[in-house]
Amino acid sequence: MTDNHRAPTGPAGPAPAVLAQNQYGKAETRVVRITRDGATHHLKDLNVSVALSGEMAEVHHHGRNTNVLPTDTVKNTVYAFAKEHGIASAEGFGLLLARHFVTTQEPIHRARVRIEEYAWDRIEAPAPRPAGTPEPRHSFVRRGQETRVTQITYDGARWEVVSGLTGLVVLNSTHSEFWGYTKDPYTTLPEAYDRILATEVSARWRFHWSDDAEPAPAWDTSWTRTRDHALQAFAGTYSLSLQQTLYAMGARIIEHRPEIAEVRLSLPNKHHFLVDLEPFGLDNDNEVYRVADRPYGLIEATVVRDGVEPRIPVDLSHP
């Protein structure tokens, strides 16, 4: 009987196993940093994942932990850095962490830091307040499902910073059409000349910056302006297809944000279908829609600055 599980053999016997790419670290360390500025408090809420790689053959082959920085230490570093350095931006905090692990631990050659930032809005203080009492500004409410994300990679010499967002839900109630498409015997979709266009934006953008000798971008300002340009393009495009809208969003970012080299967008089409109200003796003049959550069309593409090679992975769950 043939043994299908036997290792391949050759003149030298069974082929040896070889350790390939490997990494380890601490995933999803939640850290909230509150900065108290008198009656006004500022809040940063991050979810930090760190992955380290380098000279780790001994721990894999022989269980020798000499080169292993415990993942519990990685977690503690995140908390300590939040206290010692504050969190001005997700990108800046990630840079500090990545540099620390690579430059203080000789066996570690590469650090990858992924950060999700959760946004909070202030809750206005109840009125009335006694005369002369400053308005308290220390209550917050979590904002929707939108999440800011960033990934920082450092190899001891060069940086790569990819930032972006997920869960940004947008909708145009008009100025969208879809017609003139290919039809075959299985096509049942009617052409639309005035439809709802809705999507939940996942976006990543890669910065030109990679060298400590160059000034780093203003991370928070860049992220806010980039998001604004994506929204302005979505709202300002008379859309004949979601592909057209996607390209307009990416192109506007490239044209207006010189610090960004590449934009990757993933736009699921959150379908809204007109409800047939005729059985009830009612007209439906683009007023009542049925929202279908699945299946859905998924439109994805990368827009790059002329002359730039794309490097953001297609799978935006792992930028």
Rank of each mutant, 00 (worst) to 15 (best):
T2Q: 00
G13R: 04
A15Y: 10
A15D: 01
P16E: 08
L19G: 02
Q21P: 01
Q23P: 00
Y24Q: 06
T29W: 02
R30M: 06
V31S: 10
G38C: 08
T40M: 06
L43A: 10
L46G: 06
L46V: 12
V48P: 13
A51S: 15
A57H: 13
H61A: 13
H61V: 12
N67G: 01
T71K: 10
D72N: 11
V74E: 08
K75N: 14
Y79H: 15
A80Q: 11
F81P: 12
K83D: 12
A88L: 04
A88T: 13
G92L: 06
L95R: 13
H100G: 09
H100F: 14
H100W: 13
V102T: 13
T104C: 05
Q105N: 15
Q105C: 12
Q105M: 05
H109E: 13
H109F: 09
R110C: 08
A111E: 04
R114V: 10
R114Y: 11
E116C: 05
Y118L: 14
A119W: 08
A125H: 03
P126L: 09
P128W: 07
G132I: 07
T133Q: 15
T133L: 12
P134C: 04
R137N: 04
R143E: 12
R143I: 10
V170W: 02
V170Q: 05
L171W: 03
N172P: 05
T174S: 14
S176F: 07
E177I: 08
F178Q: 06
F178K: 02
Y181G: 07
T182L: 14
Y186Q: 12
T188Y: 10
Y193Q: 05
D194R: 13
A198W: 04
S202L: 01
R204T: 07
R206C: 03
F207N: 00
H208R: 12
H208I: 00
S210F: 01
D211S: 07
A216T: 03
D220R: 09
R225D: 14
R227D: 00
F234S: 04
S239P: 02
S239F: 02
S239N: 10
Q244L: 10
Q244I: 07
I260S: 05
I260V: 13
A261D: 08
L265S: 09
H272T: 09
F273W: 07
L274E: 08
D276G: 05
E278P: 00
P279V: 01
G281E: 06
E287N: 00
V288K: 00
A292L: 02
G297N: 04
L298W: 00
D306M: 01
G307T: 01
V308L: 06
V308G: 02
E309V: 14
V314I: 06
